[in-house]
Every structure is written in structure tokens, then in C-alpha cells.
Simulated assay, not measured.
Amino acid sequence: MKKLIFAGIFATAGVLGTASAQIQKGNWLVGSSLVTSNFGLNTGGGYNIGIQPKGAYFIEDNLAVGGYVDLGISKVTNGSPSEFRYAVGGLGRYYLSPGEKGVDNLLNHGRWFFEGNVGIGGRSVENGNSTTGLDFGVGPGYSYFITPNIGLEGLVKYQGQSGFGNEGLNSNISFNVGFSIYLPTSKGKQVVNDLKN
């Protein structure tokens, strides 16, 4: 009976602590935004679908740096020209702690974060405008941990591309839905072993 009670306490502590263990120094984040809704700020803005794989390493607790790739295609309406989007670069993510700056944790199973990216990218519209150059973005997001190592994410982001081509600046606000897998390192494993003992 004592073992069953101890197991219940350990499981409860593990669930309540999941929003902290994944974002410790030395851990890895691997994930992707799978669905992107784009609300164009320029003429002709519409909806698009893309995939945005990313990977990052936690250099400090709550702070990860890494890279991203962005590939997407869209059409505003039937019969309209296709648009192809591409980018590659670096990203940074900062997770807010519960109570930090007046932001409380939603249901104690997730974390608010801010993400920023800078890289090289472009946009090409069939028989239309194109831009190639600096790709940049910034915005808030939320990661809800469905398991100790997997988070469902929503991210609202201002995304822009500036550079060469027919169109000097292209920008939009996007809403991204995806997931992240948090891979613990030996430090994360040691914390789990300390909790068991």
C-alpha cells in the first residue's frame, strides 16, 4: 500500500512538474508547425499551408537557440497564381516562468513563450512578384504539454521578408499550430533519478 501511495505522489509531482523539466539547460527541442493560417497585410494576402521544422538547444533554463526551415505553398482562390515560400535561419525562444511579468500558467501544464527568427528566405508568385533576402519574425506562443516530453503549440507571429526582387518587403501575421518534442539530456535524467530516490 505504501508503494502505491508513493507511486501516486510521484506521478502527481511528475505531471505538475512537466512544464519545468523539459525547458532546462542542456535539453533539446525538436518540432514543427504543421498548419499555418496567414492573414496577409499586403494586397492579395490569404491563406496558406506550410511546414516549419525547427530544432533548438537550451543554453540556459527557459532559453533555447537553434535553427528552422520554412517551406510553404498557397493560393488565394481557385484560378489564382500559386505562391511558393522558403526560408532557413536561426531562431531563439524564451519561456516565461509562472507568475513572471504577470503571466500565469494555463492549467499548470504548459508555458507561454516568445519566439524570434532571422534567416535567408524568399517568396515567389507564379507570373508575379518575388522577394529574396532577409527573413525575420517575432511573436508569442503557448506550449501545452500533453505528456512530459510532447507539447502542442500555438504561435501568433509577425513574419516578414525584405530584400531583392519585384517586391522589396512582404509581411504578414500568421497563426501556427504544431508540436514539439523535448529531449532530456543526462541532467534531465539525473533529476528524474533524484526524484525516485
Rank of each mutant, 00 (worst) to 15 (best):
I49A: 08
T36D: 11
E60G: 09
V88D: 01
G40D: 12
D70E: 09
E60Q: 15
V35L: 13
L91D: 14
S82F: 12
I59C: 01
T77M: 03
V88M: 03
Y47R: 13
V65C: 05
L63P: 11
A87I: 07
A64C: 02
D70I: 06
L63W: 15
Y86E: 10
N38M: 02
R85A: 05
Y47N: 13
R85H: 09
Y94L: 12
F58Y: 11
G66K: 03
N62D: 13
R93F: 05
S37T: 08
G44L: 14
E60P: 08
L71Q: 05
I49W: 10
A64L: 02
Q52Y: 15
S37I: 12
G89E: 01
G50Y: 05
I73Q: 04
L71C: 04
Q52C: 13
F84Y: 12
V65G: 03
Y57G: 01
S82A: 14
F58L: 08
N42Y: 04
Y68W: 01
S37K: 06
V69H: 10
G72I: 06
L63V: 12
G92N: 08
V88G: 02
Y57I: 00
L96I: 06
G90Y: 11
E60L: 10
L63H: 14
I49L: 08
D70A: 11
E83T: 14
V35K: 08
E83P: 09
N78Q: 09
V88A: 06
A56Q: 07
A64K: 01
E83G: 13
G44M: 11
Q52T: 15
G89T: 04
G66V: 05
Y94M: 12
Y86C: 07
G67N: 07
K75L: 06
Y95I: 00
Y94H: 15
N48A: 12
I59E: 01
Y57C: 04
S80V: 00
G44Y: 11
T43V: 07
P81W: 07
I73S: 04
L63R: 11
G66N: 04
T77Y: 13
G40W: 12
G44I: 08
V69S: 08
Q52P: 11
A87W: 03
Y94N: 13
S37C: 08
V35F: 11
G44K: 07
V76K: 15
G92A: 10
G66W: 02
F84L: 05
E83H: 14
Y47H: 15
G46R: 01
I73K: 04
V69Y: 08
V65Q: 05
G92S: 10
F58W: 04
G50M: 04
G72V: 11
A64V: 06
G40Q: 06
A56P: 03
Y57H: 02
I73D: 07
Y68I: 00
V69L: 15
N42V: 07
P81E: 12
P53F: 02
L71T: 07
F84S: 07
N78T: 08
V69D: 14
F58I: 11
D61R: 01
D70K: 05
G46V: 03
G66E: 05
D61P: 00
A87K: 00
L63D: 14
G72A: 06
S37V: 09
V35G: 14
L91S: 07
L91A: 09
Y94W: 14
D61F: 03
G67V: 01
L71V: 11
V76F: 12
I49V: 10
L91E: 10
